[in-house]
Design a protein around this nucleic acid. Structure first.
Length: 564
RNA sequence: GCGGCUAUAGUUCAGCGGCAGAACGCCUGACUGUGGCUCAGGAUGUCGUGGGUUCGAUCCCCACUAGCCGCCCCA
């Protein structure tokens, strides 16, 4: 039996690494608290519509990277029967074959069906125009009073196959399932037109309550919660932070996982609360700089830009498209594609030859209206005033549709291709996109995985690595009869705040020492003598010093060695 | 999603068309209530999975899976 493994792009976080994760999270909580942020926890999955409307239907995240499923999906027998009746009512009886499910599709699709074990009689005919038997197994289908579970399973498989069709090949040839019941006089009693409600077939045999999606980011969820709970009605600015896993189906790489962790925060509220103020932008950026500094991340770079208001941006994109009509053919193939699909991305191109051309393209700065321009200038002025270093990069663009005005990212050189530690920006129109009142906001998401990677790389480079955390003491019961009272001793010490490892009476003393030396700073011997006298034998591993300590002074003594 | 590289012991990695290897770690003993150091001994294993070539495959070929690097995208 093959061992099951964590699925692609996911991973287990084990001690002692989790200690580092906790440190980062604790630092975030501590720093954010000083700015009066409160924690919000939103669901890990949301209605798919939330992300489609918030993040943007056309973004890569929504169009190809989300984990989406139809929740509460049920096989709809009525639809299946209705479809059968509809497609077969004009068929000549002689053309109807008994007990089979016919599936039409392209050869690769049929091969796949075979591969996953769908046992059906299958002909190829769409492309080749010839009939060719690929599999001889005949699956019987009966659907009175209900469709066989095998047939349902086959439909489910075919449906999933259609969903995961990577090349779009299958979609070009829609899956057509035709259920054919045995030819006999029984037909009319099996499916009586009067008993069946014939409805137009809508192209699916499945009904679902709603489409759900594992969150690919958390801002949309926070804004949804803000609207749902009418937090704007307080008239105050809402300052919320979150820590949690996010999900995107991308190709895994170092620093990029399919389940990844983000620490993020949002400042959002009605305009009357000052949510539009450039001071909020600067304050958030200053907080992030403090967070990274306090964590001890050296060598980060803050890059920022203004992508303009929701009216500036379309104007700019139009201008960019126009300029690219002439320029794009001179650029790399990627840029030629981007010019069509997502012109803003051309600005991100890293090909050296393209750089001079990019320099000649229109700049977003020239398309900002006066208000946006002034807003950005005030953000920069506030950053200057508090001494946070930054670079303005007029080519910095963000991939999510909801960003307006200030956008930024903090990068770190040690991360390779995935060099962004965190990213964020202002989203003045998001609330309205979700059907809410005007509620400008600014937020960011820290890539926790990447921050941890950076810290680990720094620790690796450091001349002295920190020693792994040791327990204060290892309690070694000498003999299994002492196990129970050793637990009592451990409980006593632990309740006084000590970190205790408890051995086992079956261990030979030598083994207790060996294990104790690996796990703890001191060993406490708990044998018959100690049990009777209440005077315990304690040996400090570092000094080799061995002393007798009365039980009531033990905690204090171990505390003291802890500070050594 | 695309391209390249990789997959052997718990870990880091050698290796070879014909008995599966090192170092570290682990276990046992020298040493029955005293660890680290030393010495002696021991066990490591589906050689990623499935096919193919071959008398014979961990090695060569193919497919798959996973990881890493780059692209894409983003945190």
């Amino acid at each position: 039996m093959t061992l099951l493994k964590a699925v692609r792009g996911t991973r287990d976080l084990l001690p002692p690494e989790t200690e580092l994760w906790n440190r980062v999270e604790a630092t975030a909580r501590r720093v954010f608290a000083r700015y009066n942020f409160g924690e919000i926890r939103t669901p890990i999955f949301e209605d798919t519509q939330l992300f489609a409307r918030g993040v943007g239907e056309e973004t890569d995240i929504v169009s190809k990277e989300m984990y989406t499923w139809e929740d509460g999906e049920r096989f709809n027998e009525r639809k299946l029967i209705a479809d059968w009746v509809k497609t077969n009512e004009s068929d000549e009886p002689s053309r109807v074959q008994g007990g089979r499910v016919n599936i039409q599709g392209v050869p690769s699709f049929l091969a796949k069906l075979k591969e996953i074990g769908v046992q059906l009689q299958v002909w190829r005919g769409v492309n080749a125009g010839e009939e060719h038997l690929l599999s001889g197994h005949v699956e019987l289908v009966s659907f009175r009073p209900s469709v066989s579970s095998d047939a349902i399973a086959s439909l489910l498989k075919a449906r999933d196959l259609g969903k995961s069709d990577p090349t779009g090949q299958i979609q070009q040839f829609p899956i057509r399932l035709r259920l054919v019941i045995p030819m006999s006089g029984a037909v009319n009693t099996w499916v009586d037109r009067k008993d069946v409600i014939v409805e137009p077939f809508e192209g699916k045999f499945f009904d679902s309550a709603q489409s759900l999606t594992l969150r690919p980011e958390n801002t949309a969820g926070v804004v949804r919660a803000y609207l749902e709970h009418k937090l704007g009605e307080s008239g105050l600015l809402q300052k919320l932070y979150y820590i949690g896993p996010q999900f995107r189906r991308e190709r895994p790489q170092k620093g990029r996982y399919r389940q990844f962790w983000q620490i993020g925060a949002e400042v959002i509220g009605p305009p009357s609360a000052g949510s539009e103020s450039p001071l909020r932008d600067a304050e958030v950026l200053e907080m992030l700089a403090s967070f990274l500094d306090e964590l001890g991340i050296a060598g980060w770079t803050l890059t920022l830009n203004s992508v303009g208001s929701s009216t500036d941006r379309p104007r700019y994109i139009a201008a960019l498209r126009e300029a690219l009509q002439d320029k794009a053919p001179l650029m790399c193939v990627d840029c030629q594609r981007r010019a069509e699909t997502n012109p803003l991305r051309v600005l991100d191109c890293k090909v050296p030859e393209d750089q001079p051309i990019i320099e000649t393209l229109p700049r977003i700065a020239d398309y900002l209206d006066d208000a946006s321009e002034a807003h950005f200038a005030q953000v920069l002025a506030a950053l200057d005033a508090c001494g946070v270093k930054y670079e303005v990069n007029p080519r910095l663009v963000r991939g999510l549709d909801y960003y307006t005005r200030t956008t930024f990212e903090f990068t770190h050189g040690g991360l390779g291709a995935q060099n962004a530690l965190l990213g964020g920006g202002r989203y003045d129109g998001l609330s309205e996109m979700l059907g809410g009142p005007k509620a400008p906001g600014i937020g960011f998401a820290i890539g926790l995985d990447r921050v941890v990677l950076t810290l680990q790389a720094q620790a690796e480079a450091a001349p002295r690595k920190p020693a792994p955390a040791l327990a204060d003491a290892f309690i070694a019961p000498l003999g299994e009869s002492l196990n129970a009272s050793a637990l009592e001793l451990a409980r006593e010490l632990r309740r006084q705040g000590l970190r205790i490892e408890l051995g086992d009476g079956s261990f030979r003393l030598k083994k207790s020492f060996e294990i104790g030396n690996k796990l703890a700073r001191s060993i406490v011997l708990y044998g018959e003598d100690e049990h009777a006298s209440g005077i315990l034998t304690v040996k400090n591993f570092a000094t080799g010093e061995q002393t007798k300590i009365p039980r009531d002074q033990l905690a204090q003594a171990l505390q003291r060695t802890g500070k050594m």
